[in-house]
Design a protein around this nucleic acid. Structure first.
Length: 487
RNA sequence: GGCCCCAUGGUCAAGCGGCUAAGACGUCGCCCUCUCAAGGCGAAAUCAGGGGUUCGAUUCCCCUUGGGGCUACCA
């Protein structure tokens, strides 16, 4: 694995947003490139004309950029082996297809969907593997002419040699052997002239001088087809490494019903790129030390395919939350604020420009150690914004109905009025004095004040809450709550 | 159905013939504490089953079971 500069690639199909599994593949490749001083190439595999879209391509690129996984070569940035969009490389594939056709390693197939469907059905009835049996393998020129006259548009199939072992030396799985007899002649160019995945991917990886193909395990079974194409073309294949799949809680492949599956959704929920990446890195890869929290730079230093796991990994949101929380804690006040702002605005807690920025920064900072991701911020700081509130429940209200409560509040108000600047220290002193003068247990003092100020029985420390609220708001809230108790 | 991959606590996982089988998340308990968290300390919890190989298997081989992937003119 430590063999000099690597040229790796991420080659998504633009058929939807960037999936969490794709993001992990991109990360692994990116890390490999950075660690070896090599190149990370971004290629777009848009040969599925029906499902591909430019919107999805943009979404994927944006997600990659947001994650900080920039590419050295590829779409948008260019490079010596472009173009990097497969539909723009049709002429290139045609050249190789002609070679294959001329040497008899590929042939035209005029079968219709119905015919193929029928073949599959009868094979599976006989409990045989449904695969193309080679009906058009040896068509004469006259046969082909006849079909063409009928207006049939041929696909091009690769002639898979019989009785051959196709060996894949996988970087994570070791040697995997396939029997060529189990692989039917597969289509390399569809009847509309567009190559299929297994064909285009092989040619592109070779032409783009990719040294290592690291991708999800779902591609392992396709690899022998690609190896066959390389053999047919007389090209040396790249090295392959198939990383285990990411599974949902029920151990099936991650899909919508498992919750958020796209990077975009995690971004929206306010996860940090560094947190998401850290979590993804630990799915299907590990290192022998005990460290769990890594920055991207640290990962570059220690990542290697040697420690890639073979067994599939279940996506555990709890762990993601914990890891992301660790990254949140390392944020500066300013960075945390930037992250919080859209969630604050979106929650309807505040309007743009309604509060002083410096105050907001401080308020948001109080949530830092208590949240896992951005969307959790509003409910943690809500208390600073709502001067009018209802009691959380009866138990909460009961705190203020207690005999000693009214006196505590009066005394508290008096002290607030007399107090100078409210800081953590001065508030601490103020409350201590309050406890002393009232002669009550601490709890009988703190709780009424807390509830009077927020309507809740729990929340941030009073030494945090009171200075941030400030004298004016406090008096306002006291008045409000007294009115509430009477009414 | 065929082919391929995989198998250590609930989850991520270390382990690479001999260990009291790491660590983390989560769970539970205790401490801290005005509350909720956070934090600190501690606990419970794993080698799928069966055969081999070996002085000795979590580790190597085979079978079974279980999970997953592929089997498209999708990627």
């Amino acid at each position: 694995m430590h063999d000099g500069q690597m040229r790796v690639r991420f080659a998504p199909s633009p058929t939807g947003p960037l999936h969490i599994g794709g993001a992990r593949s991109a990360l692994f490749n990116w890390l490999l490139a950075k660690a070896s001083g090599g190149k990370f190439v971004l290629r777009v595999e848009d040969t599925d004309l029906e499902r591909s879209s430019r919107e999805s391509e943009e979404d994927i690129k944006n997600a990659l950029r947001w994650l900080g996984l920039g590419w050295d070569e590829g779409i948008d940035v260019g490079g010596p082996h472009g173009p990097y969009r497969q539909t723009e490389r049709l002429g290139i594939y045609r050249e190789y297809t002609q070679k294959l056709l001329d040497s008899g390693k590929a042939y035209h197939c005029y079968c219709t969907d119905e015919e193929l469907e029928e073949e599959r059905r009868s094979l599976s009835e006989k409990h045989q593997m449904p695969r193309y049996m080679g009906k058009c393998r040896d068509l004469s020129e006259a046969d082909e002419e006849k079909y063409r006259e009928q207006g049939r548009k041929p696909a091009i199939r690769f002639r898979v040699p019989a009785d051959q072992e196709v060996v894949v030396n996988d970087l994570v799985r070791g040697q995997v052997v396939f029997d060529s007899n189990g692989i039917g002649d597969f289509v390399i160019v569809k009847s509309d002239g567009v190559p299929t995945y297994n064909y285009a991917v092989a040619i592109d990886d070779a032409l783009m001088k990719i040294t290592h193909v690291v991708r999800g395990e779902e591609h392992l079974s396709n690899t022998p087809r690609q190896v066959l194409v390389y053999e047919g073309l007389g090209i040396q294949p790249p090295k392959f490494g198939h990383v285990s799949l990411i599974l949902g809680k029920d151990r099936s492949k991650m899909s919508k019903r498992h919750g958020a599956t796209s990077v975009e959704q995690y971004k929206k929920q306010g996860y940090l790129p560094s947190g998401l990446l850290n979590f993804l890195a630990l799915l299907g890869w590990s290192h022998s030390g005990e460290q769990e929290i890594f920055t991207l730079d640290e990962l570059v230093k220690i990542f290697s395919l040697d420690h890639a796991a073979k067994n599939p990994a279940v996506f555990d949101v709890d762990k993601l939350n914990w890891i992301n929380a660790q990254h949140v804690r390392k944020l500066s006040d300013e960075a945390l604020f930037e992250m919080a702002l859209p969630h604050l605005l979106g929650s309807g807690l505040m309007l743009e420009g309604a509060h002083e920025r410096s105050w907001l920064v401080k308020v948001v900072a109080t949530a830092r150690d208590h949240i896992s991701y951005g969307a959790e911020i509003p409910k943690h700081v809500e208390i600073y914004f709502k001067d009018e509130f209802s009691f959380e429940n009866e138990e909460t209200e009961a705190v203020l109905r207690e005999e000693s409560a009214a006196g505590v509040l009066d005394l508290f108000e008096e002290k607030i009025k007399k107090a100078g600047e409210l800081t953590a220290e001065s508030v601490q002193a103020l409350l201590k004095g309050l406890v002393k003068e009232s002669g009550l247990p601490g709890k009988k003092v703190y709780m009424p004040v807390r509830v009077a100020l927020s309507g809740q029985i729990h929340g941030p420390e009073m030494t945090l809450l009171i200075p941030l609220l400030g004298g004016q708001k406090i008096l306002k809230r006291l008045e409000y709550v007294r009115g509430k108790l009477k009414g």
